[in-house]
Design a protein around this nucleic acid. Structure first.
Lengths: 167, 167
DNA sequence: AATAATACGTCAGCTTTGTTGACATTCCAA
DNA sequence: TTGGAATGTCAACAAAGCTGACGTATTATT
C-alpha cells in the first residue's frame, strides 16, 4: 500500500467517499466550463468539438500523421476522416504526402486554420488563465498532479509523448 | 490588472501559454480517464454516459424534480426525458407525484437503480481515490480550487447548491 | 371565475460524433 | 513478389444532444 497504519485518523480524510464525490462533481462541472467558450464560437460555424480537437493537435504537432492523430484522439479513422475531410475542403488543413513513406499524410494548418485555432484556444486559454491566476501556482501544481494521476496508462503515454515534443 | 509589475520575472511562469496548453491537454486526457471505467461497464448494457449522469444525481439528491435535474445537467427536457423513460421502464428509477405541487415528479432510485449506480460510482471513485492518494492531500486541494475556478458562474451556483445539501 | 404560467410528457425531425464492416489503393519491407 | 501497414471511402447505424409544436394537469394571478 503506502504509509498507512498510524496516520489512520485525520490524515486520510481527503479520501472519504464524500470528498471523492465532490471531486467527481467538480470534474463534471469544470469540464463543461472548459469546453463552453470554444463551443460557443463553434456553434455559429459548421464545426463542433471534434474539429476543435483536430485543429488543436495539428497546430501543436504540425506534420503529424493521420495515424498519430487517431491514437491521440482515440477515435476511429472513419470518424476522424469525416472531420479532416471537412477541414481540408474548407481550406483549414493541408495534406502532405510523406516523403519517406508516401502512404502517410502529414497534416498542417493553413493560415485560415491557424486563425481559427488561435481564436478557439485563446478563448480556452483565457478561462484557464483566469482560473490559474485565481488559484495560484501551488494549486495549479496540485491540479496537474491529480489530472496526470487520473489518466489511463495509455493516455498518459500519449500525453507524455506530447509533452516531450515542446515540453 | 492585479499584483503585476515588480514580480514580472519567474513568479508568473505558471501562466505562460505553454503551461496553459499543458493544462488544457491534461484536462482533455484526464477527462477521458475519468469517464473510462463507467463507460466500459455501460458499454455492455443499453445505457450510456447520459444514463450514468442521471443515476448519479438522483442518487445524490433523492426526490429531486425533473426540472432540477434539467438545470443541473444542462440539457433539454426532451433529451433528459428519453433517458429517464428508459430508466423508469427498466425499473431503475421511480417517479412520485409531488405532494405540495402535483405537477412535479420527484425522482428516486429503486433497489436495482441503486445497485447500478453503486457499481458505476465505485469504479469512478476507485480511479479518483488512486489518483488522490498518489497526489496527496495538498495537491487535491489545489485540484479542487482550480476546477472550481474553471466553472461557469452558472455551473458554480449549481455545484455550490449541491454541496450545501450534504457537503 | 377566467386566464396565464408552470411542470411535465411526447411526437417528429435534425445534427454531431461516435461506432462496425467492407473494400480499394498505395507502398514498405521481408 | 507478396504480405501487411497506412490511408481513404462507402454504407448503415447508434447515442445523445437540439428545435419546434402540441397536450394535459396543476397552480398562480388577475
Amino acid at each position: 500500500m503506502e504509509a498507512g497504519g498510524r496516520e489512520s485518523g485525520n490524515a486520510l480524510l481527503f479520501l472519504t467517499d464524500e470528498q471523492l464525490r465532490k471531486g467527481i462533481e467538480a470534474m463534471f462541472f469544470a469540464y463543461r466550463g472548459f469546453t463552453a467558450d470554444p463551443d460557443r464560437i463553434l456553434a455559429d460555424m459548421a464545426y463542433g468539438r471534434a474539429h476543435h480537437r483536430a485543429l488543436h493537435f495539428i497546430h501543436r504537432s504540425p506534420g503529424t500523421t493521420v495515424n498519430n492523430l487517431l491514437a491521440i484522439l482515440g477515435v476511429t479513422k472513419q470518424s476522424l476522416n469525416r472531420v479532416l475531410r471537412a477541414l481540408v475542403e474548407d481550406g483549414l488543413v493541408r495534406n502532405e504526402v510523406g516523403k519517406r513513406d508516401k502512404r502517410e499524410r502529414h497534416l498542417f494548418l493553413t493560415g485560415t486554420g491557424e486563425d481559427l485555432e488561435r481564436q478557439l484556444s485563446d478563448a480556452q486559454r483565457d478561462r484557464m488563465r483566469t482560473a490559474y491566476r485565481a488559484a495560484g501556482p501551488e494549486a495549479v501544481a496540485g491540479f496537474r498532479q491529480v489530472l496526470e494521476a487520473m489518466m489511463d496508462n495509455e493516455m498518459r503515454k500519449r500525453y507524455d509523448a506530447l509533452i516531450e515534443l515542446k515540453g
